[in-house]
Design a binder for these strands. Sequence first.
DNA 1: ATATCTGCAAATGTTTTGCACTTTT
DNA 2: AAAAGTGCAAAACATTTGCAGATAT
Lengths: 165, 165
Amino acid sequence: MDDPSLQQAVATFEEFLRAERLKMTGQRRQMVRAALDQRGHFTAEELYQRLVREGESVSMATVYRGLRLLEDAGIVEGHDFADGQRRYERALQVEHHDHMVCVDCREVIEFRSEEIEKIQKGIAEEQGFDIEEHNLTLYVACRNWRKTGRCARREERERQGKRKD
Amino acid sequence: MDDPSLQQAVATFEEFLRAERLKMTGQRRQMVRAALDQRGHFTAEELYQRLVREGESVSMATVYRGLRLLEDAGIVEGHDFADGQRRYERALQVEHHDHMVCVDCREVIEFRSEEIEKIQKGIAEEQGFDIEEHNLTLYVACRNWRKTGRCARREERERQGKRKD
DNA sequence: ATATCTGCAAATGTTTTGCACTTTT
DNA sequence: AAAAGTGCAAAACATTTGCAGATAT
């Protein structure tokens, strides 16, 4: 509630809303809070469920509409991991990165390569383009999974008691 | 009809089907033909429309079911360009490449970077993973588009008479 | 006051599925 | 004959939208 980075995010969002002549509402404020507090990547449904669980009064429609605004405002960033549901993650104070997704456990691992970024930029420029955004996702299998048909990390997590991280 | 690469694709598909104890049918044969003949990237709907236009007897359900098989057999490759529709392209005798998609005209430009591939592999291996597949898509804007709000290539295509390439 | 929001339910668009019938093997 | 494939219409999903009433500026 008195998290300074939350304060900053709310301020950023208010500024964005003002510029667009939109309004700050309880639902939107709660979405900012919940989205920042969510660790890792989350879907619209997950954010909605969380808000409901916390007793907030909000609907799926509002969550979808709000996520679009949060994304436009740069509070969250949306990704498409090709599984039919858009995923979001906080974008404020987070340096840009790409993703690896385990094809078995769906765990998302972040990574960053200055070198790849640079090459990408060069390739686009060769063709006269500017990159607006990009998606680099590696779909990976743990080595152990290839051999055993099971994912080491998933098993590890299960062993630790299924807290859904 | 006597395209050797079509013959090869059909043979490859038949082999795949046999191994899976599935059957070759007229619809599936027509799908292979049409898919290979389709230039660029196409959606399930586009392939279906084409087959219908050509007078083939096929349904959307069969196209969807067939595309999954064609993909599993390595005849086509599916991509998700985050616009809500899966796109396919022929995968036989085509070297691996990544994509740039113009955010305005949606044109798809292919490119290839040995260097990026190498770095990706290294990054995954550092974490103990093997890459099963990957998606590298640059969403780009023509420089001209940034200035004028219109896409140079789109205009060029429109000027040339709207043949949908 | 007035423009914007919200929730609801209905609509959307893509892809999948159940089922009765047809075709391959 | 048995197993698999097909078309149809219905279902499934994630996401969007129209609208009437509620709320922020």
